[in-house]
Design a protein around this nucleic acid. Sequence first.
RNA 1: GUGGCUGUGGUGAAGCGGUCAACACGGCGGAUUGUGGUUCCGUUAUUCGAGGGUUCGAUCCCCUUCAGCCACCCCA
Length: 421
Amino acid sequence: MLITGPRGTKDILPDASGNWQYIEKTVRDICRLYLYKEIRTPVFEHTELFLRGIGETTDIVEKEMYTFSDRGERSLTLRPENTAAVVRSFLENKLYADTLLNKLFYIGPMFRYDRPQAGRYRQFHQFGVEALGSKGPAIDAEIIMLAVQLLRTLGLDDLKLYLNSVGCPQCRPVYREKLQNFLREKTSNLCSDCQSRFERNPMRVLDCKKEKCTEQTQGAPHIVDCLCDECSTHFDQLKSLLTLAGVDFVLNPRLVRGLDYYTKTAFEIQYAPLGAQSAVCGGGRYDGLVAECGGQSTPGIGFAIGIERILLALEKQNLLPVISNAIDVYVAPMGIDMQGMAFKLLCKLRENGITAEMDFMEKGIKWQMKQANKYPAKFVAIIGEEEAAKEKVMLKNMLSGVQELVSINEVQQKIQLDMEA
RNA sequence: GUGGCUGUGGUGAAGCGGUCAACACGGCGGAUUGUGGUUCCGUUAUUCGAGGGUUCGAUCCCCUUCAGCCACCCCA
């Protein structure tokens, strides 16, 4: 039996890597436009970072992390997300000393021990953005616009932007208690998951998709009605900024993020045709995270986009660019004796920036012509005994079928002339 | 982690107890040994995800296992 790749991992094969490069390039272009700079952090961190950053009772930490001890008995974890690591790096490298506002992005693999499904892998890739330093709503709006513009640039519409505010340490406990009071006598009617959520994280009950739970939560108090003045003003300002920017959004009072560090703004962008994996982008504000990681209290906001899911969406909509294998010249030696001359020509063409290929399989002219046609090649430079004797090449234009005998030095000129035309 | 469906060549797939394991694409060879895209011909699965069992006989039935997909959970 062959050794297979681990469950939930996927090879990005030659035919698909072009699609990844296309997305990565689009991401980088947009980030340049918004002046977000790339940060690259390690794929593993001290386990402690995620316990503190993401929250010990979150599903990610409780059951989805790849945690192991290294040979020095350190507990390490393959990053399940990258915000905590960016914050760690921000503090460790004192990025706050360089500028008041740090605008960063990352793109790379993340790891979660989940049950695999289409659009859900154990090693998956996220593009994410983090802005550290500003507490005002304008940066929230910018971040959301970046996500929206990226998805639009890729050609995706039919996207829904859901928005909510989850409050801050001032107002959230007040809301939490209100919600618990509302749910208290209904707990017996909730699903078993929600019964345990009632104590631990009552806000997640609102997020439950089970019909009986949704029924019970009809008329539940909304957090947006319980926000403190600061959070409420922030939320109102964000909404008006987004309206000014011309983006549609849907207020979703039930939207709760799964990571503990979120405060105030929470948002999610969904692409409905992906079914259960429709959440294509998720993010929000995390004003408490930097302090939680041991730094000076610094506000922050960010989001992450799942690249596999974007790819699925683009495939579904037929929005992926066609990647061409076209080449300028195929050099075809007729027989092994001509190989040296062919190779010399090949090298010369490439030195001059001409996309060229030759036969490495030592096949006949017929096979080589077929190959040339497959790429397709604009020209084939045929080198037979007769041509070789004269230090010349039979240059065939594959489109017109016209061929002429030219000297080795002329090949390049002929091709460049054609390329300009 | 729970439940369901699926697993046949490089790919897309028929077959569902005894077949030579269809067909299509692709690959390779030829017709056309100094010339491609069309056409035609030939060839391409000691084997049906892996392991075990039932049976005279298993791709087909049963069990185990692995993997993928779908829903839940969670999330990007």
